[in-house]
Simulated scan of single mutants.
Amino acid sequence: MPLTNPWLAGPAPDRELPRDRLEERILNLLSTQNMAVIATVNADGSPAATPVRYYSLGFEIFYTSWNASPKSRNLRRDPRVSAAVFAPLVGQASSRGAQLFGTARTIERDHPDADRYWEAFRWQSEYAERGRPLDQPPADPLTIIAPHRILYTEHWLRRDGFAPRQTWRPA
């Protein structure tokens, strides 16, 4: 049987991608997707995973959440968080995603950093869809995930002799 992608056969290479190329790929993934699964820790130590629509600025992702939501309560108690972002999977060659491991912080609308994030948050489309006025921006808090490590997976990297899993850490 002919192989569509023969470079997927055999052992995976272990070469590291140059940092600038890895960063470009991660930023491309974060800016071309909009759904993530956020994993927090419940009070009893069990995991809680929640899908959210996110936006990104650099390597940070952020989303809105009510202060009373389970994920927000969990993050107030323990700010450690993991988030998974992934592109649609059609086959092994299209496998592409990132796991962000870091710390979350929630900021209210009046926080000095809030405007920077709200400028990147495309709330207008959701408001239009829900019939809300576009001259009244949201007052919801934003939760920002700052990664201290990103595990990036892209099996297409094997084609060029690079490991399909690459690790990024802030400089």
Rank of each mutant, 00 (worst) to 15 (best):
V37I: 13
G10C: 01
A128K: 15
L134V: 05
L30V: 12
G58R: 00
T103L: 13
A12S: 13
Q92V: 12
E126Y: 14
L22W: 03
N5H: 15
I38A: 09
M35R: 10
Y54R: 05
P137Q: 05
H148T: 08
T40R: 11
E60C: 04
A114P: 03
N5E: 08
R122E: 11
Q33M: 12
D140L: 11
E16N: 11
Y117H: 10
Q136V: 14
S65N: 05
E23I: 06
G10H: 02
P13M: 01
A68T: 11
R116S: 07
P11Q: 06
K71G: 04
A98V: 08
V90C: 08
A104T: 00
R116I: 09
V37H: 07
P51M: 10
S72W: 10
D44K: 06
E108L: 08
S56Y: 03
F62R: 04
R105P: 11
F59T: 05
R80M: 01
V37P: 06
I145L: 15
V52E: 09
Y63K: 04
L17V: 14
S31R: 12
S72Y: 13
I38Q: 05
G58E: 02
R80G: 04
N5M: 06
I144D: 02
V85A: 06
S65Q: 02
P133C: 01
N74S: 08
R122C: 07
A39I: 15
I144V: 10
T40A: 09
G102M: 03
Y117S: 08
S69I: 00
D115L: 13
F101K: 06
W123H: 04
E119H: 15
T106A: 11
D20T: 12
V85F: 07
G102D: 04
P11F: 04
Q33D: 02
W123A: 07
P112Y: 00
A128C: 04
W118E: 00
E23F: 04
E119D: 14
P141A: 00
D20P: 09
G97D: 01
I26W: 00
R96N: 11
A93K: 05
L22I: 10
S82Q: 10
E16S: 14
Y117M: 01
R96I: 05
T64R: 14
F101E: 15
